[in-house]
Design a protein around this nucleic acid. Structure first.
Length: 646
DNA sequence: GTGGCGTCC
DNA sequence: CAGAGGGACGCCACT
């Protein structure tokens, strides 16, 4: 079904291919129709065209150095003066919790609603009885309208002798207009969670203007964690009341509804107060920096409601298909275990690297191919693959491991994660975890569902569409290599993309000095390893290991590559230099990755930072582009009639 | 909680 | 000389 879209003549290397969809939305028409670009889906197709890409680039240029100028600076190596920026310091906040209020009467509530109406940006936080956004019940709400001026509005504390509180449904009905008012700006810490909780009460939160977690992430993604307690320590030198202090820990930990008011109120009000103070500090820094401001305002904040909708919508899986697969895998694991015990001459735990080491290397005397960082003989896949050439047991272990992994991580686990309320699986997307700007996913991680071999791919088949709907998958083709072409300005690489060539074959032809029609599959495989290796800053040693060829040969490949694509080498060198001078690198759109170890006296750490420096602009720019696409696709979906999409 | 391993992009 | 591939998350064994 893959169909390449028409190239724009000028910048065709930035075009994309419509390949497969994985939008997590079900469309009421078939993928073929989308590819055919019927009037109905014209808009969705457009969202992915280079026209948009060019518009984004234009936006990235406005108010800051143009893309061409950036590329120019990178290739000339004459970058901006080295980081003159004095080390940014943050003043300690003095926080007095005694001024916080607890709202228990209608009169107090009205007074605070007035305050909210008169405040430009209100700090807002919900307290609930669960961290699971699909199950969390609202226990209370806190606000701050100025530093130190905060209140807690308890709604559902139900411990013995809890004070009488305002009725939750009444309060939510009263607050709904403010919560859904896009003009009433809110700041919060991880507002996606609050928005998801409120959605359970049929409130579509609007005015999600600032999120301190994301402010911190955009300001410096690698400074540390981005939870509120960490931020308060880092940017306010303030130690917040911790949840454990008031709720205890372990099995006996209380939920928020069970916590007494004199404990709950200062804790909750402090959260809102600290959020507002963090916002004042962090947003001042972002506003003073046009590039970071754009990333924050145009990419991260608009993504919040999108992710919330994706999470709450969930994905449908066939528990039956997965149960069937588990069953089949169990049978095969049993066979493999019996065979392994036979070969080893004793029973052992095939899943234990330690026991396996003892069997393979001590009892059976197989050669030690490689050691783990802690000095024990490695039994990883690479090692077992090599040993499997000469011995029968490692082959069994390999198959066992692969299947055991599929079973425990996917076929057994996924069905257990289906929420009865929706009959679907609801992941959590994390927006402030990775160094480079990518998203991550947990509980379950939907970003590592197998695809590379047939057994694994069966698991994807269990992700299904409801009756009469179709899952569409869209994927950018070779996005990181296209970005490398753009960033490096390398004529040959750009040319290859412009002409719609198979990029790995084109690389093979260039490096081997032959016609592209004479490239064999082995040559293409090697070129592919070179291309990906470059993105990751791999050395000749690494390439040799990857391909199982002598180091000298790998060295030759890389030299030939850089001869053919000199712009790429220049780009890599100037990126290293830029990283070293500035202490950070940037994506095309201005996202920044700080590299504190780029000047490390430890060569290994320094080299690691250099590889990260080379990779981050490519990986990060791809993340920027994909986030932008998610925002645009969601905006389109929102315009569709109820139930037509998703 | 950590180390080893394996899945994804 | 040693180490030499970017970014994630989850499972298991073991301490």
């Amino acid at each position: 079904m893959a169909k390449k879209l028409e190239d724009n003549k000028e910048n065709a290397y930035l075009s994309y291919q419509l390949a497969t969809i994985k939008l997590d939305c079900e469309l009421p028409y078939k993928p073929e129709e989308l590819v055919n670009r019927s009037a109905d889906n014209e808009k969705l197709v457009e969202l992915f065209t280079e026209l948009n890409f060019k518009r984004w680039l234009a936006e990235a240029q406005s108010g800051s150095a143009g893309v061409d100028a950036v590329a120019e600076r990178a290739s000339s190596g004459a970058s901006a003066p080295a980081a003159e920026k004095a080390e940014v310091t943050f003043e300690a906040a003095s926080i007095d919790r005694s001024q916080y209020e607890t709202i228990l009467t209608e009169e107090a509530f009205r007074a605070w609603m007035d305050k909210l109406d008169k405040t430009d940006v209100v700090a807002f936080d919900t307290e609930t009885d669960s961290l699971d956004y699909m199950e969390a019940n609202l226990v209370g709400i806190s606000f701050a309208v100025a530093e130190g001026e905060a209140a807690y509005l308890p709604l559902a504390h139900d411990y013995l002798d809890a004070p009488k509180q305002l009725d939750r449904d009444w309060v939510l009905a009263e607050m709904k207009p403010w919560l859904e008012n896009a003009g009433a700006l809110k700041v919060g810490q991880n507002l996606k969670y609050d928005a998801s909780v409120l959605a359970r009460y049929d409130i579509a939160m609007k005015g999600i203007a600032y999120d301190t977690m994301l402010e911190s992430y955009v300001f410096n993604s690698v400074a540390g964690k981005h939870d509120m307690d960490s931020l308060a320590m880092r940017y306010l030198q303030h130690k917040c009341i911790s949840f454990e202090e008031i709720a205890g820990k372990g099995k006996k930990q209380l939920t928020f509804n069970q916590i007494e008011m004199d404990q709950a109120s200062p804790y909750a009000a402090e959260d809102a107060d600290v959020t507002l103070r963090l916002h004042n500090v962090l947003m001042a820094h972002l506003k003073a920096d046009e590039k970071l401001k754009v990333i924050f305002e145009q990419y991260e904040m608009p993504l919040v409601p999108v992710l919330s909708r994706m999470e709450r919508h969930g994905v449908l899986i066939s528990a039956e298909m997965l149960a069937q697969q588990s069953q089949e895998i169990a049978v095969r694991l049993d066979e493999l275990e019996k065979e392994a015990f036979e070969l080893a001459g004793e029973e052992f735990n095939l899943a234990s690297p330690k026991q396996l080491q003892a069997i393979l290397f001590e009892k059976m005397g197989l050669p030690v191919v490689k050691k783990t960082p802690s000095g024990t003989p490695s039994t990883n896949e690479e090692v077992l693959q090599e040993l499997a050439l000469d011995y029968p047991l490692p082959k069994r272990i390999l198959e066992y491991r692969g299947l055991a992994k599929l079973k425990s991580t996917y076929t057994d686990k996924l069905p257990k994660m289906v929420k009865p309320a929706t009959g679907r699986v609801h992941t959590s997307y994390h927006q402030a975890v990775t160094a480079t700007g990518r998203l991550s996913s947990t509980d379950p991680n939907l970003q590592n569902i197998p695809i590379r071999n047939d057994e694994g791919r069966r698991i994807r088949q269990a992700f299904i569409a409801p009756a009469d709907k179709t899952i569409l998958a869209v994927d950018y083709s070779q996005i990181e290599l296209r970005i490398m072409a753009h960033l490096s300005g390398d004529e040959a690489l750009i040319d290859a993309f412009r002409h719609g060539k198979d990029i790995h074959s084109a690389t093979a032809a260039e490096v081997m000095g032959i016609d592209i029609s004479d490239v064999t599959s082995e040559m293409r495989r090697r070129a592919k390893a070179i291309n990906f290796g470059l993105i990751y800053g791999m050395s000749a040693f690494g390439l040799a290991k990857q391909l199982g060829i002598p180091r000298g040969e790998a060295q030759q490949y890389m030299e030939r590559y850089f001869e053919r694509y000199p712009g790429v080498r220049q780009y890599m060198e100037s990126t290293r230099l830029q990283a070293s001078e500035q202490g950070y690198v940037e994506t095309i759109f201005g996202r920044r990755l700080q590299l504190p170890e780029i000047k490390s006296s430890n060569a290994m750490r320094r080299k690691g930072a250099e590889r990260a420096a080379i990779n981050a602009p490519m990986q990060g720019t791809a993340a920027d582009i994909i986030k932008r696409a998610m925002i645009l696709v969601d905006a389109w979906i929102q315009t569709q009639p109820e139930g037509r999409v998703a």
